[in-house]
Design a protein around this nucleic acid. Structure first.
Lengths: 134, 134
DNA sequence: GTGACCTTAACGACGCGTAATTGTGG
DNA sequence: GCCACAATTACGCGTCGTTAAGGTCA
């Protein structure tokens, strides 16, 4: 059946499906195809390959290529682009961790309040339910 | 008296005292003096100036110059160096905030525990003191 | 067999560091 | 008055993007 996936195929995540050949990817990113080959050699992108050896770029790859364009147009060379992207990823992860840490702290405080209030008075007699900090 | 500071002088923070002339700064950073002038024009460093217009580099400036050298030696151009340093500062701030957030969360939890335990029993009769979460 | 892909090489433009020049300040 | 600094200009080298040439897969 045409719609069946073979077991060794990638999961069909829309952002990571490698579908564009190099000419299309270059057009989408607004650059020369040969430039994309340079980027790969420098380790800035790592497109999938077909059995025959052709590159296949995913939507995620295209996004990254666009970011690379922004940075080179801003005057960075390729090594700079690589580092900046690396650091931007790190900043994003740290930001997420920070938000997560604050959320968990808030929830821990609420949990402890609830815990002690339950110990202190029967639920039916609780005068004013705890409504969260602040 | 020779040791008195005039009121308009900078506070004597060792790291921000601008003491090195450009030739010394260049030597300490291992670069050509003219290179330092280029860095300044590109906004990578901003040394203090004397009344006569000469540059004076602080220890902090030297540190930054050394970092710039590391990055350019690694193949970045100046715009890349500027962005990387910017992002590294941001990463450092986020890292500190994350540590701080986790510390505050821990302390908040302890504080609440202590608060409720104080409400429950007189201090003198407290059976087993609270020793932190977990 | 005709394209589109692959790789390697060559070319031109630009960025960066150094050196040279001329002027000025301590 | 001498030496170091300031600013501008010129030169050499390396990087980057593009183009070209020749080979391979669909």
């Amino acid at each position: 059946m045409a719609s069946m996936r073979r077991p060794d195929q990638q999961p069909p995540l829309a952002s990571s499906r490698a579908v564009y050949v190099i000419s299309v990817a270059a057009e989408l990113a607004g650059v020369h195809p040969q430039t994309l080959r340079i980027y790969e050699r420098k380790g800035l992108v790592d497109p999938a390959r077909t059995g025959g050896g052709s590159r296949r770029y995913s939507e995620r790859d295209i996004q990254r290529l666009r970011r690379i364009q922004e940075l080179t147009n801003a005057g960075l060379n390729l090594e700079g682009v690589r580092r900046v992207i690396e650091l931007e990823d790190l900043v994003e992860r740290l930001g997420s961790e920070l938000i997560e840490a604050r959320r968990e702290a808030r929830e821990a405080v609420e949990r402890i309040h609830r815990h002690y209030r339950r110990d202190l008075v029967p639920l039916s007699q609780a005068p004013v339910p705890y409504r969260g900090r602040r």
